[in-house]
């Protein structure tokens, strides 16, 4: 499978690209967990793989589903919905795991489905419902349902901001903060 991170870095890494409207964007990958959509900067994603067998680990925390063997190494697998609400992300045949690398750590995030690449506005000037939908070809089958209230996400340190794109509200994840929060690592 193509290493998405290498691909993105070869294409210029995190350099924002101007849109037709002049707003800078960054490539992201969309993750749906049940009814919620999240987005991670593509540069933080090593790869996206089909849901692998997961081995539970005693006392790992309810949001840590366990570890999975990927390319001869073990990766912790976490459930974002459990981190947010305590309710598990539904499993599906299209289930995927996005491997996130940040803060010198690595973890897998379970997703019901993934979509990418999305060109989402960079942090400056971006925000929920700020009309930043650039009208670019978005995820097919976009429901328009955000699935979670902004209030639910308030105070969650690993959610950097919310961005509306192609009729979907994405909670953009701060990857280093997510990895640290999921694994209980201090900054």
């Amino acid at each position: 499978m193509t290493d998405l991170r290498e691909l993105v870095e070869a294409a210029g890494g995190e350099r924002p690209a101007p849109t037709a409207a002049g707003a800078a964007t960054t490539p992201c990958v969309g993750l749906r967990t049940g009814g919620r959509w999240f987005a991670l900067e593509a540069a933080t994603i090593g790869e996206v793989v089909a849901l692998p067998p997961i081995t539970r680990v005693p006392a790992a925390g309810s949001h840590v589903l366990g570890v999975a063997m990927l390319r001869s190494r073990l990766v912790p697998i976490v459930d974002l919905d459990r981190m947010l609400t305590g309710i598990a992300t539904p499993r599906s045949e299209r289930g995927r795991v996005a491997i996130v690398r940040a803060a010198a750590l690595e973890l897998g995030v379970v997703a019901t489905e993934t979509r990418g690449l999305l060109e989402l506005p960079v942090a400056d000037g971006a925000g929920a419902g700020d009309g930043t939908d650039d009208g670019a070809a978005g995820p097919e089958g976009a429901s328009g349902a955000s699935g979670a209230s902004g209030g639910e996400r308030e105070g969650v340190p690993w959610i950097a901001r919310e961005v509306q794109h192609a009729a979907i509200l994405y909670a953009v994840i701060d990857a280093p903060a997510l990895v640290r929060a999921a694994l209980g690592v201090a900054r």
Binding site: V57, A60, V64, R73, L74, V75
Partner: peptide, 19 residues
Amino acid sequence: VVPAPVALPRNPAVLGFAR
């Protein structure tokens, strides 16, 4: 032996993993 992921939260009795 398969090295445990860095910072994996786990029961302290779990030393590591093996195939």
